[in-house]
């Protein structure tokens, strides 16, 4: 999506991130013995696949000039409800349909609040995350921590813990979600419309694009993807901890999306950027882990790298006082 007037010598943020990732890969391969093994590389991607899938959902919202801060809450509570239902004897297939329905309903409300009530997306989804967690936790769930018991021996368990030809399912599903999302965004009409809307909502509306239904669609799709991520996460650790809602995970998701070069102002970037961002974080976290860097220090390093990326981006593609948009925070 790089505009044609950009000078030839400037790098896009994506190129910078790819370069950093490759540099880190080389560096770690040389310095760390156990880094460049097939097992470790697979483990590396497996570790970030949930983050990556959530990143795809977030990217979808951000490209359409929105943001979805409720995806983590949505993923946790909808899948926790699935587990709870199946523990109480509901067949897993029906439980999944109900859980997906819950997730989509939350997405629908998000979309409605943003599109029709016109609450700023940051605030609407932030509040919806709280509401969704509160609603499900107080009325549908019995505990903070829901174990996978009822469906422990079914195909459901296989989703997050199995593997196909040696590749863990979570990695495959990340790939699948990414490819589908990419194709939808690039080829289908709604996908192109989302770009148009993110680029300039007013112009998009003037040209006849049904902005409001599109926004709703965007949040509903994000919710569906989040549900997939939640299923994978739950089946890989056999439980859902709903207190994850209070964690920094959603910030990590934004980090992955933005670091890859998806512009927060909408209309810019693609799923490829999400993959690049996810890989960078994966390589970084994996390398730091092997080097035994403490968890909190890892957070600091991750954040500093994100900061560096956005500073470089802002220096290379400076925002102009004349063209910056009002209320664009």
């Amino acid at each position: 999506m790089s505009p044609s007037f950009r000078p030839a010598f400037a790098f896009t943020q994506e190129q910078i991130v790819v370069a950093i990732t490759l540099a880190l890969l080389v560096l770690f391969s040389v310095t760390l013995d156990s880094f460049l093994t097939a097992g470790n590389i697979l483990a590396l991607i497996q570790n970030v696949s949930i983050l990556g899938i959530l990143g795809v959902a977030m990217a979808l919202a951000i490209i359409g000039r929105g943001i979805d801060l409720s995806i983590v809450a949505n993923m946790a509570v909808s899948v926790a409800w699935v587990l709870q239902l199946s523990n109480n004897g509901v067949p897993i297939e029906i439980a999944i349909v109900m859980g997906l329905g819950l997730a989509l309903a939350i997405g629908l409300v998000n979309g409605f609040l943003v599109a029709y009530v016109e609450i700023p997306a940051i605030f609407a989804t932030l509040a919806m995350g709280t509401v969704a967690y509160g609603f499900v936790r107080s009325l549908l769930l019995e505990d903070n921590l829901i174990y996978l018991k009822g469906a422990a021996d079914t195909w459901f368990k296989w989703i997050g813990s199995g593997q196909v030809v040696g590749i863990p399912n979570s990695v495959l599903l990340f790939g699948l979600v990414a490819v589908v999302a990419h194709v939808v965004l690039r080829i289908t009409v709604p996908g192109r419309f989302i770009y148009a809307m993110g680029d300039n909502p007013t112009a998009a509306r003037s040209t006849g694009i049904p902005i409001r239904p599109l926004i709703v669609l965007q949040y509903v799709t994000a919710a569906a993807i989040a549900f997939v991520a939640g299923v994978i996460a739950a089946t890989s650790v056999d439980s859902v901890e709903t207190r994850i809602v209070r964690s920094n995970l959603v910030y990590d998701v934004i980090l992955v999306v933005v670091i890859g070069g998806v512009g927060l102002s909408g209309g810019k970037g693609s799923i490829r950027n999400v993959i690049v961002g996810t890989l960078l974080i994966g390589v970084l976290v994996n390398g730091m882990t092997i080097m035994n860097v403490a968890y909190t220090l890892q957070n600091i390093i991750k954040s500093l790298i994100l900061l560096t990326a956005i500073v470089i981006d802002s220096l290379m593609n400076p925002r102009d006082e004349q063209t910056s948009q009002q209320g664009d925070i």
């Binding site: 156990s34 901890e241 994850i244 964690s247 882990t289």
Partner: peptide, 18 residues
């Protein structure tokens, strides 16, 4: 006291100390 945080830390620790 957060299982998900403990999980994240334990994954790291296990990898760092095979």
């Amino acid at each position: 006291w957060d299982a998900s945080k403990a999980h994240a830390i334990a994954v790291t620790v296990l990898k760092a100390n095979p």
